[in-house]
Simulated assay, not measured.
Amino acid sequence: MERLVDGVCALPDGRPPWCAGAVVLAGRGPVVAAEAATGWALRYRAHDPGRDRGVDLARERREPMRVGTVFDLASVSKLFTAIAAVQQVERGRLDLEAEVASRLPGFAGSGITVRQLLTHTSGLRPELPFYERDGRAAQLELLWSEAAAPEAPPGGTYRYSDLNLIALQLVLEDLTGRGLDVLVRDGITGPLGMSSTSYGPLAPQGVAATEDQRRPWAKADRGMVRGEVHDENAWALGGVAGHAGLFSTAQDLAVLCRTLLNGGGYGTARILGPDGVAALLDPPGLGFAVDQPYFMGELAGRGAAGHAGFTGTSVVLDRATDTFLVLLANTVHPRRRAGGSAPRAAAATCLARAAARAG
């Protein structure tokens, strides 16, 4: 596993490395089977568009990757929003079959349900340019317009959309009268002792850098992003969003994985009941992707669940073998490109084969 992690920072044939640095943590049952870091949390000072490559910092100014480095989780944040929603379902306060319009008048007439948000069957398009609008009201007008005329009929085929989790955040905040950051802190990270998991902004030291955000390759001109959310829409929405915005470490995410594999409890803390965990992880999954080989490799096929994030992050947990894998990388440093998920799938396959050999 350690050799595989080293390899993701040094691809052959002159191609750019998949990432500047990475951390992997894999476990089975209560045992951490592998934990390693490689590469750089901060390597580049900028991206050079003329040469289409990063501008290296002097070696003494770089920051090495460590197993405790904090990462922008990108869409892995969606798992926390989904857990917060299922917690409200367990308490009898949220009905999965309820129409979103019962909480958000802007969805009136859409027929979209809470379950459809969580299963990406609402018909909403993948994203909207909130970053082009000033002010919350103007941003949400985009969402209301989309809800009035979604790209596809609600209840149809799977269509992955950030808008689903943004809308779910608004539902939860209207239902509870608390911000999503408070719901996540009080209901998940606080009870589980995940002290390195929070929404930004964070002090940059110890945080993996993401992108030198500039147009035309990015959607905003922000320079090198480090400690602030990479996703432009989450940034425009104030840094706390249902689809992105959380920062965390591999160790903290391992605690979350073990909690779910344990049926919702960890130590003396319990954040969900077994039925709630099953609702999240059983196909088709509520907020969780299920059996997706592109980042789960050979762990996929028996009900493995998790999520991947645009910045290079992924979490996979497999109830069939009681194993989990956290792979965190800064693949968008110094700029985004279509790097694929082969290293994530390869790491998951390595774990699947190790579990098979161990029996």
Score class of each variant (00 low, 15 high):
258 R>C: 08
310 F>C: 12
292 Q>C: 09
318 D>T: 14
312 G>Y: 03
335 R>I: 05
309 G>E: 11
340 G>Y: 06
281 L>W: 10
253 L>E: 13
355 A>H: 14
286 L>W: 06
250 A>T: 14
254 A>R: 09
310 F>T: 14
308 A>T: 12
287 G>P: 05
252 D>K: 09
281 L>G: 11
341 S>Y: 02
323 T>R: 05
297 G>W: 05
309 G>M: 02
343 P>A: 13
311 T>A: 01
268 T>R: 05
352 A>N: 15
304 A>Q: 12
292 Q>M: 11
344 R>N: 15
254 A>D: 12
253 L>G: 08
273 G>H: 08
345 A>P: 15
259 T>D: 06
330 N>D: 07
312 G>C: 04
298 E>M: 00
336 R>L: 02
293 P>I: 08
295 F>W: 10
272 L>F: 06
330 N>A: 01
342 A>E: 14
262 N>K: 05
307 H>I: 04
324 F>H: 09
323 T>I: 06
304 A>N: 15
315 V>M: 09
259 T>I: 00
325 L>K: 03
293 P>E: 14
320 A>S: 14
317 L>S: 09
317 L>F: 09
285 G>V: 07
266 Y>N: 08
354 A>F: 05
297 G>D: 14
333 H>Y: 08
299 L>E: 00
302 R>A: 12
332 V>E: 05
354 A>H: 15
284 P>C: 02
331 T>R: 08
298 E>V: 11
341 S>L: 06
292 Q>L: 05
333 H>G: 09
320 A>G: 11
319 R>P: 15
309 G>H: 09
320 A>R: 04
283 P>H: 04
314 S>M: 11
321 T>F: 00
355 A>L: 07
348 A>Q: 10
324 F>W: 02
350 C>P: 12
323 T>N: 03
320 A>P: 15
341 S>P: 14
313 T>G: 14
336 R>I: 00
332 V>Q: 06
252 D>Y: 05
265 G>C: 03
300 A>E: 04
306 G>E: 08
282 D>I: 01
345 A>W: 08
338 A>H: 03
266 Y>M: 00
322 D>L: 01
278 A>H: 08
254 A>C: 07
251 Q>K: 14
299 L>G: 04
